[in-house]
Simulated scan of single mutants.
Amino acid sequence: MVNDIRFQNLQERNMSFEDVFNRILKFMNRNQRGNYRLMIGTDSQVHHDYTLFITGIVIQSEGKGVWACIRKVSVPRKMGRLHERISRETSLTEEIVALITEEKKNRMIDIILPHIYHGATFTMEGHIDIGSGKKNKTKIYVEEMMARIESMGLEPKIKPNSFVASSYANRFTK
Rank of each mutant, 00 (worst) to 15 (best):
G80M: 12
L99R: 11
D49M: 14
I109N: 12
G133K: 06
L92A: 05
R77Y: 13
G126A: 06
I109D: 08
I70D: 05
E125G: 08
I112E: 05
I128N: 06
H83T: 01
H83N: 07
K72G: 02
E125Y: 12
I86V: 04
V97S: 01
P76D: 07
Y117S: 09
V73G: 03
T101K: 09
I59T: 08
T101H: 07
H115R: 12
S91A: 13
E102W: 13
I128W: 05
V66F: 15
I116H: 01
E103Q: 15
E102T: 09
H127S: 00
M79T: 01
F53N: 04
V58K: 15
E125F: 14
G131V: 03
G126R: 02
G126K: 02
E102F: 11
V73H: 10
G80L: 13
G80T: 11
W67F: 14
N106K: 15
P76L: 08
I130R: 04
I128M: 10
T101N: 05
Q60V: 15
D129K: 05
R77T: 12
E95V: 10
N106A: 13
R85N: 00
R85A: 00
S74Q: 11
F122Y: 09
I116R: 05
V58G: 10
S87W: 04
E95Q: 13
V97T: 05
I116F: 02
I111C: 02
G133A: 08
R71I: 07
G63D: 04
K72R: 13
L82C: 00
I109A: 14
G63C: 07
H115C: 08
R77N: 09
V58P: 06
E102I: 11
T123A: 12
P76I: 07
L92P: 04
L99N: 08
I96K: 06
S91F: 09
D110N: 12
V75Q: 01
S61P: 13
K78H: 13
I59N: 06
I109P: 08
I116C: 00
I70Y: 12
D49T: 15
H83I: 02
H118C: 01
D129G: 02
H115T: 06
S74H: 08
K134P: 06
V58Q: 14
S132Y: 09
I130G: 00
H118N: 03
D49E: 14
P114I: 08
H127L: 03
G80D: 11
T123F: 12
I70H: 11
G126L: 03
G133P: 01
H118D: 02
V66L: 15
S74M: 12
E103K: 15
F122E: 04
I100F: 11
E84H: 12
H83A: 05
I57K: 03
I59W: 10
D110W: 11
I130T: 02
E62S: 10
M79D: 00
G119H: 04
S87K: 07
K78F: 15
K72W: 09
L52H: 06
T121Q: 03
E89W: 10
M79W: 04
A98C: 08
R71E: 07
G65Y: 15
I57R: 03
I130D: 00
H115N: 11
K78N: 11
G119M: 04
V75T: 02
E103F: 14
K104L: 09
M79E: 01
G56R: 05
I116T: 03
T90K: 01
L92F: 15
D129L: 05
L99S: 09
T121E: 01
S132I: 09
V73M: 11
I109L: 15
